[in-house]
Amino acid sequence: MIRERRGQAGSLESCDALVIVELSEEKKGILLELDSPSLLSYEEAMKSAVIETLCSLGVADALVKIQDRGSLDCTLRARVETAARRALAFQKHGGTI
């Protein structure tokens, strides 16, 4: 049985973010680990970008790890969406893609 339901996107380049989304079966909501040089000024904005993106894809329970390197809002949303879609695809196809 495949336990991995994990998607990753992005990089550790400057102005990018490395995002890992691990889907969870338990109803524990979104657990977010966020490391970023922009936290002081944009923590709330970043958190809402992550939550909104996940909600729009129907992801309600997941562990999300983000190592941000100063990404803009659009970059962060794109990385989170891609990572989440990869995790969802993994779940759906049992790891064949």
């Binding site: 002081l40 944009y42 809002d73």
Partner: peptide
């Protein structure tokens, strides 16, 4: 427009 308005520094 690209960054959003930064929160005030404490």
């Amino acid at each position: 427009e690209m960054t959003g308005i930064p929160a005030p520094i404490p």
